[in-house]
C-alpha cells in the first residue's frame, strides 16, 4: 500500500502532537506535520497542502478549520469535510476516540482508512493515559483532604488517628455520603472558622 499522503495534525499540546506524529511515522507515513497555533491555519494549509488534516474533537479551533473547508473550492485542493456516514463504524470509532479528520475531496476511502485507524488507536491510548493520570491525581488530592480532616479532629477532639478516621467513616455512612465529601465539608468549615 502506498503511504505517500501528506498529513497535517492540528494540536495545541506539542507533546500530544508528537505522539500522533510518531504513531503515523512508525506506521509508514512520512510527510506528517503538526501545528499548534491555529491563527496561521490557512497559511499552514496552503504551505503543507495536506491530503488529510487531523484535529482533536475537544479543540474549539475545529470551527475555524470547518470554515476554511467550507469556503474552499476543490481546485485549490484545500480540505473538505470527512465525517460522513460512508463508513459508519469508522466514523463512530473516530468520534469515540475523540478525533476528527478533514480530507481533500475525492480521496479514496481505502487510503484514508489506515490513517484514521492509526490516529484512532493513538488517541485511545492517550485518552486512557490521561484518565489514569487524572484518577491518580484525584486519589492523591482525596488522600490529602482526608488527612487534613483527620488532623482537625485529632486536634479539636483529642482523638487518635484511627478514631478520627472511624468517625469520618461513620458520619459518611449515616448521611449516605462518601468519606471524601464529609472530609471536604469539615476542611471547608474549619477554614471558614479560622
Amino acid at each position: 500500500m502506498t503511504r505517500d499522503l501528506r498529513i497535517l495534525v492540528v494540536e495545541a499540546d506539542p507533546e500530544k502532537a508528537q505522539h500522533i506524529i510518531d504513531a503515523l511515522i512508525e506506521a509508514g507515513w512520512q510527510v506528517v506535520h503538526a501545528i499548534t497555533q491555529v491563527s496561521g491555519l490557512e497559511r499552514s494549509i496552503k504551505e503543507h497542502d495536506p491530503d488529510i488534516v487531523l484535529i482533536d474533537m475537544e479543540n474549539p479551533d475545529r470551527d475555524t478549520l470547518e470554515h476554511i473547508s467550507a469556503v474552499s473550492d476543490t481546485k485549490s485542493r484545500t480540505v473538505a469535510m470527512f465525517v460522513d456516514q460512508t463508513d459508519h463504524d469508522l466514523t463512530q470509532a473516530a468520534m469515540a476516540a475523540g478525533v476528527s479528520a478533514y480530507v481533500v475531496d475525492g480521496l479514496q476511502m481505502n487510503r484514508i482508512k489506515p490513517v484514521l485507524e492509526t490516529a484512532i488507536a493513538r488517541f485511545q491510548v492517550m485518552r486512557k493515559m490521561r484518565s489514569e493520570l487524572d484518577a491518580a491525581k484525584q486519589a492523591l488530592e482525596d488522600r490529602k483532604t482526608i488527612d487534613r480532616a483527620k488532623g482537625i479532629l485529632m486536634r479539636q477532639r483529642g482523638m487518635s488517628e484511627d478514631a478520627a478516621y472511624k468517625l469520618l467513616r461513620k458520619t459518611a455512612m449515616d448521611q449516605g455520603r462518601r468519606v471524601i465529601d464529609v472530609a471536604h465539608a469539615l476542611v471547608t468549615a474549619a477554614d471558614l472558622l479560622t
Partner: peptide
Amino acid sequence: QPSWSALRDMLALGH
C-alpha cells in the same frame, strides 16, 4: 460541547 462542529456531529450521529 467544545465547538459547533463537534455539537453538530454528536447530534447528527445520535450521541
